[in-house]
Design a protein around this nucleic acid. Structure first.
Lengths: 123, 123
DNA sequence: ATTATTGTATTAAGCTCCTAATACAGTCAT
DNA sequence: ATGACTGTATTAGGAGCTTAATACAATAAT
C-alpha cells in the first residue's frame, strides 16, 4: 500500500488517516507490532518527527499502545476499534452529504449518482 | 448561509469551496454581481487579503469575472458552471468512496449505509 | 558488557498561511 | 471636481507545519 500525501492539508493528519485505514481494514492486525518510527517515516518519505507526531496522536486516541523502549502495537480492544471505525465512517459520510447538498444536489440525486458510479467501478 | 471555517485546512481554500457551492446552488445567480472584497471578508470574518486570494483563485478557474474597478460578477457561461459542478461532485464522490474502501468497507456496504443515513435525515 | 534498536526531546531553519495596516489607481454618483 | 467605492499591491509580523541534525534513556540482542 502506498503513502499518498498531498500538500493541501498537514502531513501528520494525513498520516493519522492512513494508519487508521490500515488498522480498520486489517492491514495492521489488532495486537500486532508496528514498525519503528524511523522505519515508518522512511517508508512514507517523511521526517521522523512528523511520523512521531502522527503516532502520538493515534496513541492519544487509544488506537495504538506504546511500549516505551520496545516499539508500539495496535490495541487489542476490538470493540473500541470498531467504534472508532464506525465514527470515522459516519463523519465522512455526513461531511460528504453536506457538501453535496450545499452544491445544490438533492438526496435522491446523490443516491442515484453514487449508485451509478459504484456500478461503473465494478466493471 | 454561514461561513463555517475550520482550522485544519487553509482558510482561502475553504472560501473557494464555499463560494463555489453558492454558485452551483444558485445562491449567487449566474451573471449576478458579487459583494465587494471588503464586504465579503467582513461577512466571513476574514482578512480582506485572504478573501482576495480566494476570489483570485476563482477567477483563475473562470467562474468569476473581475471588472477591474467596478466589482466582480459570476460568469454567465452556464455550461462551464455545469461542467465545474459535475467535476467537483465526481471528485468528491470518488475521494469519499476511496476512503471508505481503504477503511475496509465494501461497495455494497457503503451503499446501504448511505441509504440508511439519507432515510434518517429525511425524518 | 557491548551494541543496536526502541521512543522521545530539543534546537534551528525555511516555508506557507493569515492578519494588519497602508497605499494607489480607476470608476461611479453627486 | 469631489468623495466614496472598486480591485490591487506592499510590508511586516506571528503562527503552524516540516525538515534536519542531534542527543538521551531504556530495552533487546549478541
Amino acid at each position: 500500500m502506498l503513502w499518498e500525501l498531498k500538500s493541501d492539508r498537514p502531513i501528520y493528519t494525513q498520516l493519522v488517516e492512513h494508519i487508521k485505514q490500515r488498522v480498520f481494514s486489517g492491514t495492521y492486525p489488532l495486537g500486532s507490532r508496528l514498525p519503528s518510527v524511523r522505519d515508518m517515516a522512511q517508508e512514507a518519505a517523511v521526517n521522523p518527527n512528523t511520523m512521531q507526531r502522527a503516532l502520538a496522536k493515534l496513541e492519544e486516541e487509544g488506537l495504538i499502545i506504546t511500549h516505551r523502549t520496545s516499539g508500539r502495537s495496535i490495541t487489542e480492544d476490538a470493540s473500541m476499534v470498531e467504534l472508532a471505525k464506525t465514527k470515522l465512517a459516519k463523519d465522512q459520510i455526513l461531511e460528504f452529504l453536506e457538501k453535496m447538498q450545499l452544491m445544490g444536489f438533492e438526496q435522491k440525486e446523490i443516491l442515484t449518482i453514487i449508485t451509478n458510479l459504484v456500478k461503473e467501478m465494478k466493471e
